[in-house]
Every structure is written in structure tokens, then in C-alpha cells.
């Protein structure tokens, strides 16, 4: 049986109305009925406090609260409506430092602009079929940054201590 995407609720966050509309058109064509919009990170945070969503698709470059600030807020704030919500980051940037900064903020997936039907569909499927466990350490809370390093050309060569299996004390929990 194929996925019943009609059950999904997605929040699209972008300060550009044309980009929000484009993403909405594609999500609706997948059968997703509930697609809500926000124009920046602060608006999105308020929107999620009002009503839950399953996935956030968020632009990186926004003002006053950009995509990374918004992601950190969702992951770390005491009053966050959902610290575990999957975040797909829309970005026109491909430089490694931008990708790493977003990853370190707690982003799950990247969707590079210009977007296509296939690229958006693939990212939604990634979130659905390969959900990452979350990591809580002294300096990070967010999806496991190790698992998909090889899938991201911008991150090739990155060898953090935890990538080498040197995490000192791993405790497995359930949400």
C-alpha cells in the first residue's frame, strides 16, 4: 500500500511568497491536504505553538529570524512546541560552511534550490523512511549528524570525534 500522504501536515517557511506557493503546489499534488505557511522563523515558531505539524520545510535566508536561528530555537528552547520535528532546509547555498552550520543547528535534510518535483519528493521520503535518532549531548541537540555524511558531498572529509565512534558514554532512550 502506498503512503497516505493526506495524513501529513507540513509547515512551509519562506519569506518569498512565490517560493512558498511553488512548494505548496508540489505538496498538494502529493495529496498532502494541510500545508500551512509562515514568512519567517518567529512566525513559524508561533504557528507551531498554535497547531502541530509533522514536517517543517524552511528557507535558510530570512529576516529577522533565519532558518538556522529558527532551527536552534525549535531544538533548544524550553517552550519549543516540538524539539523532534523533522526540518528540511531550503537553500540556495551549497558551500560547505553553510551546510555545516545548518546541520549543526539541527537540520535533518537539505533541499537545494532551484527545486524540482523529484528533489522535494526525495527529501520527504528521506524524512519518512529514514528518520534519524536524536542526539543529546552537552553542546548539541538534534538529529544524528553522523549517519548520512557520505550522502552529502559538501560534508565529505569531515571527521569529528563522534564520527570516529569516540563518544564517551552513549545512552539509548525512547522519546
Amino acid at each position: 500500500m502506498a503512503y497516505q500522504f493526506s495524513a501529513l501536515s507540513i509547515l512551509v517557511v519562506d519569506d518569498n511568497t512565490h517560493m512558498r506557493t511553488l512548494v505548496k503546489v508540489l505538496l498538494h499534488s502529493m495529496g498532502i491536504r494541510e500545508v500551512r505557511e509562515a514568512t519567517d522563523g518567529a512566525h513559524a515558531f508561533d504557528e507551531l505553538r498554535l497547531r502541530a505539524a509533522d514536517i517543517v520545510i524552511c528557507d535558510l535566508l530570512m529576516s529577522p529570524l533565519d532558518g538556522n536561528d529558527f532551527t536552534r530555537l525549535l531544538r533548544q528552547a524550553q517552550d519549543s512546541p516540538n524539539r523532534f520535528i523533522p526540518i528540511i532546509m531550503l537553500t540556495g547555498y551549497s558551500e560547505r560552511r553553510k551546510v555545516e552550520a545548518a546541520r549543526d543547528a539541527g537540520v535533518n535534510e537539505f533541499l537545494r534550490k532551484p527545486i524540482t518535483a523529484r528533489s522535494l519528493y526525495q527529501r520527504v521520503i528521506e524524512v519518512v523512511e529514514r528518520p534519524r535518532p536524536f542526539i543529546q549531548s552537552a553542546d548539541y541537540f538534534g538529529p544524528d549528524r553522523r549517519r548520512r555524511k557520505a550522502d552529502n558531498p559538501a560534508l565529505h572529509g569531515s571527521r569529528r570525534a563522534e564520527d570516529r565512534g569516540e563518544s564517551p558514554d552513549i545512552v539509548y532512550l525512547t522519546e
Binding site: P133, I135, Q136, D139, E162, P168, V171, T174
Partner: peptide
Amino acid sequence: PEGPVHVIR
């Protein structure tokens, strides 16, 4: 990282 690392599923 300092301290324990919790993996939450």
C-alpha cells in the same frame, strides 16, 4: 563532547 551522549529514538 563532554558528559554522556543520549541517543533518543
